[in-house]
Nucleic acid binder design. Structure first.
Lengths: 254, 254
DNA sequence: CGAAGGATTGAATACACTCAAGGGATGTGG
DNA sequence: CCACATCCCTTGAGTGTATTCAATCCTTCG
């Protein structure tokens, strides 16, 4: 019984004691407001690998925040080809693209065992009218998503396979670092196929590029496990200078 | 003097009498609230072709709505290559990607003589806390921008040059239609080079593809002027069935 | 009128894709 | 517990689409 109660309490970790605090919605809120936010959060059982969070076309009712694990979102065109549009890590919000016409334009699947916080959007919207900081944080998060998509666009439009994979790995690395994971050693939760799809390349090209990176000593891989040996070179290849992340890199002026 | 006063009054057209009413921020607001929105709008002299609205890296203070004309936004990477990230038509909002870190991640340039409404973001945010419909409309618009970027991503990642150009033209056509312009005859305000950049292709490829479309009888062009003869075929090529636009196309179930 | 930028077209090249075969891991059922 | 099927990944060979390089034409604008 002890184990059960531990699990339950873990499941119920409140926003204010959540380690993702500063990466997620509560950023900038004071204790009282965090409690109010906490009250509208629904926490349900974790999703297993491969389980759907929602399906394309479904009615939109809630935003989801990743607590642990990871989620991929993807759209399907009429011709049936699939395009992965997002990879979400702990602290990130899913479903923001569904607000405008009240249904999900994409599907979401768990890439591993993943737990989530559900935020009913109506209530969240009401609450954010009352709490200016929450309001602002929501705008910030949506804005960041727009900016992120646009830098991904840049990647797709004019980068080579090498540059795309490097940028993908560097981006992942810095997001993991922000979550107190290692920035040089991690497991890819997406398959080669998914990565290829996400970057607009084929699985063979991803595999070959990984092989070349490995033979060049930039990194080593074992299936999904990646160990980056020369992060700086990888960053350079990705077109990102030393101590800058994708999103907050000031143009070099010095 | 008569002409001057006409111009001035045109410049000052209030939101409630603006033809873009239903495409822009006021959608869903009642008359009283529209007036309140109107009060915070700054309307300044039009921008000429090639003039900057703002520059990448500049502090973000305002959202801009296009009144007439068109604007392109683009980012510049450290290597100096430019990527066009958006083409904005009347009624559309510019600058939403700048909220999250309070500075513009991209630059914005007028593609033709363009007039704009400026909305100081602080004030807009305050006002939207008081007017739930405005609040909601802002979310909808941002959400739409996210969804739009994601479908552009899909385009980049897995479509051929033909499909990309067709999708670009069809998208433009339907947006122009929504603004009461012709959906088959219009002037491209972007150059071939810009279109190529936007779609991740070279100027030569754009030119060749236009030539082929023309020889196939899909459309005819004279420099920036485009006349679409077979819109449905173009839509099919773009992967969009008959009476659907890019954003609100239900998956075919019938 | 001359210069400069934009667009078109041609020829050759390159990068990523397709097709194909095989290896290695994982999971299921006998 | 082993055998088999399946999935994922890797590597090779050949192909094709869009690119690069280059020349020319047209339009615009000073």
């Amino acid at each position: 019984m002890a184990t059960t109660s531990i699990k339950l309490s873990a499941l119920k970790t409140a926003c204010k004691s959540c380690s993702l605090h500063d990466l997620c919605l509560p950023l900038g809120l004071d204790i009282g407001d965090i409690d109010r936010l906490d009250n509208i959060v629904k926490r349900s059982r974790p999703l297993h690998k491969g389980e759907y969070l929602f399906n394309s076309g479904e009615a939109f009712t809630s935003i989801f925040a990743v607590r642990s694990g990871s989620i991929k979102t993807f759209t399907e065109s009429e011709q049936g080809d699939e395009q992965i549009t997002g990879l979400y890590l702990p602290g990130e919000l899913i479903g923001l693209d569904a607000i405008h016409d009240a249904k999900h334009p994409c599907s979401a699947i768990a890439l591993e065992t993943t737990s989530l916080c559900e935020l009913p959007f109506d209530t969240l919207e009401d609450l954010s009218s009352e709490i200016p900081e929450l309001h602002h944080q929501l705008f910030r998060i949506m804005s960041k998503e727009i900016a992120g998509d646009q830098s991904l666009l840049m990647l797709m439009a004019q980068k080579s396979a090498d540059e795309r994979l490097a940028a993908f790995l560097v981006n992942l690395s810095s997001r993991l670092k922000a979550r107190n994971f290692s920035e040089t050693e991690f497991n890819l939760t997406m398959s080669r196929k998914d990565i290829g799809n996400y970057l607009g390349l084929t699985i063979e090209t991803i595999s070959r590029t990984f092989s070349r990176f490995q033979s060049e000593g930039l990194l080593s891989t074992q299936r999904k496990y990646v160990n980056i040996h020369k992060l700086n070179e990888l960053k350079e290849l990705a077109g990102i200078s030393d101590h800058c992340t994708t999103t907050d890199c000031p143009s070099k002026t010095a």
